[in-house]
């Protein structure tokens, strides 16, 4: 119980509280983000220069993994499929928008309909994949009888290299449309009724109303929808794993799945090669994320 010699020293915490507090609150988050996100990114870069089976000694081989990647037909198949996913997955955005517009009305039981449309997003991707795999199953699935009604001959959607990726994307769109729909439904709540009224007085209706009055007000929702959909498309993995395991003969692989296959699956022992694929996927995502960050920054400055 001695007297405090210097008043200034005693109040360090008091003096700096305002500046220190946010960092203290952020510290756990930053620590975990650094250890589990930032560090592994650099580790992936490092491992991609090695030949390593995950158990024994890692051997430095420079750029060999990348050179091999350029020569690997499976890599190009995966890349092509990633592009297909990216483009077709974006259909979820207009899909979600139109369902949201349709559901944005006041009738009895609308909450029930909204929940029904939202349902696929609530259930796990794995379950969606399983259900669709049964749906497409040529022996017991409902898909073939269904297209039979339109006079089409039976198809083996998931067993045919030409159709398999589209079949999985269709399954993936089901929950993704629901997600976009929710984003737009909340966005529609924020649409200013006065502006709509004013537009109506000026004679706008239908498509013109949607395009010039509603959509501009939904821009924040659209922005988020595009971001989550593109990221969702690039990391599509669970559906492929559940529905086809990348087959038949590797034709439904995407980069994320191929990476898993070569490094972590039953026959995968090539950590270095897997890391090289991860690096390529990371760089593709980086380009996209950087573009969006730049756009966001520009818009914020403009505002």
């Amino acid at each position: 119980m001695s007297a405090i010699p210097d008043a200034d020293q005693r109040s360090w915490w008091r003096r700096n509280q305002m500046r220190a507090a946010p960092w203290l609150f952020l510290a756990p988050g930053i620590a975990f983000f650094a250890v589990y996100v930032i560090l592994p990114i650099f580790q992936s870069f490092q491992i991609s220069f090695y030949r390593w089976d995950g158990l024994g000694e890692a051997r430095y081989i420079g750029l060999v993994n990348y050179r091999e990647l350029l020569d690997d037909p499976a890599f190009y198949t995966s890349l092509r499929n990633n592009v297909k996913w990216l483009l077709l997955y974006l259909l979820a955005i207009p899909g979600g928008l139109f369902i949201a517009l349709f559901l944005n009305q006041q009738v009895r039981g609308i909450r029930l309909y909204k929940s029904l449309f939202f349902f696929p997003f609530v259930i796990s991707q794995v379950v969606v994949g399983l259900v669709f795999a049964w749906f497409y199953n040529p022996a017991i699935g409902l898909f073939n009888p269904l297209i039979g009604l339109f006079g089409l001959s039976p198809m083996n959607v998931l067993g045919n290299p030409n159709t398999v990726t589209y079949g999985i994307i269709a399954a993936g769109l089901w929950p993704q449309v629901a997600y976009c729909m929710i984003l737009y439904l909340t966005g529609l709540n924020a649409v200013d009724p006065e502006q709509v009224e004013a537009a109506r007085l000026d004679g706008a209706k239908g498509w013109r109303m949607l395009w010039y009055v509603i959509l501009p007000q939904l821009r924040p929702a659209t922005f988020i929808a595009v971001v989550v959909t593109v990221i969702g498309a690039l990391r599509s993995f669970d559906m492929i794993s559940v529905m086809t395991n990348g087959g038949p003969f590797g034709s439904s692989r995407v980069l994320a799945y191929y990476m898993f296959e070569v490094s972590l699956s039953e026959y995968g022992f090539r950590m270095g090669y897997g890391a090289a694929i991860a690096v390529v996927l990371f760089l593709i995502m980086m380009v996209y994320i950087a573009f969006f960050l730049w756009r966001m920054w520009r818009e914020e400055r403009g505002a």
């Binding site: 038949p248 003969f249 026959y267």
Partner: peptide, 22 residues
């Protein structure tokens, strides 16, 4: 096949067999 061959060969091989069958 997948126990007699190297793991990587097994995976590539069996994928090839499936492709050949189709």
């Amino acid at each position: 096949f997948d126990r007699d061959t190297d793991a990587e060969m097994a995976s590539a091989g069996m994928e090839g067999f499936q492709e050949f069958m189709v």
